[in-house]
């Protein structure tokens, strides 16, 4: 088992294409997860049980099933009922929904941490419910939870190889096809690890910065 530098150099451009897709999927998936998680958290608090119960059930359902199975559903089964998604779109929706159920829990904690007096002050100021959420509750709830949310983004990033299962040409998939084609696994898989590591380390540095930046103030 010898490391072949020439082969490694040869495959790096293709792998970098995969890195770009991996980062794209992570960023788009995170954006979906952040928005979806927020709405899950808000809807789950609804006093209307016809809203809160189904949302709660959906969250438990998504959490109780593996991401890989969900990706298969989105990509291979939805077309049966006429919903055709491109691999990346299916992947982003899958990652976003799956992680949205987890970030909703973060939002819930963040929202619960806003003192009840803030809700009361908003009511006394005669703000409507949407105004209360947008101007009073969320601006206070979100900053303390940014580091936790960022943690989920890093986790999601490390799960993107699952997208290979639905033919997204992300880093892992590129590496696998290179390996299969050349019958060499050492260089492609090692480089996948190296790329993931580099990006993870970079993310952790960013995370520390976020934690400092949004440290709970008084």
């Amino acid at each position: 088992m010898d490391w072949d530098w020439v082969f490694a150099a040869e495959i790096i451009p293709t792998l970098l294409d995969g890195v770009v897709i991996t980062i794209q999927a992570t960023l788009l998936g995170s954006a979906v997860a952040m928005v979806v998680g927020m709405f899950f958290a808000i809807l789950r608090r609804s006093r209307n049980v016809f809203v809160s119960k189904p949302v709660g059930f959906f969250i438990d359902f998504v959490r109780g099933t593996p991401l890989l199975v969900q990706l298969y559903f989105l990509f291979y089964i939805l077309p049966d009922i006429g919903i055709l998604l491109s691999p990346l779109v299916a992947g982003v929706i899958g990652l976003g929904l799956h992680y949205g159920t987890y970030t909703s829990e973060v939002y819930r904690a963040g929202i619960d941490n806003v003192p009840s007096g803030q809700w009361e002050a908003a009511k006394a100021a005669n703000l409507t419910m949407p105004q209360t959420w947008c101007h009073v509750i969320l601006p206070q709830a979100i900053p303390p939870m940014i580091p936790v949310l960022a943690n989920y983004i890093v986790s999601m990033f490390k799960e993107t190889p699952l997208l290979a299962a639905i033919t997204v040409l992300e880093l892992m998939n590129q590496a696998r096809s290179l390996a299969n084609f050349h019958y060499r696994y050492l260089e492609p898989m090692t480089l996948v690890g190296v790329f993931f590591l580099i990006i993870s380390v970079f993310s952790v540095v960013l995370l520390r910065w976020l934690e400092n930046r949004f440290k709970r103030v008084g």
Binding site: G117, Q118, E120, A124, A125, N126, T128, H135, Q140
Partner: peptide
């Protein structure tokens, strides 16, 4: 209403605390 524990909006300045409701409502 004025509350025992003030309940000012901590993420807004003093001025914004006062202008928020008139602007929105």
């Amino acid at each position: 209403m004025v509350f025992q524990l003030f309940n000012l909006f901590p993420h807004k300045t003093v001025l914004e605390n006062v202008t928020l409701a008139p602007i929105l409502t």
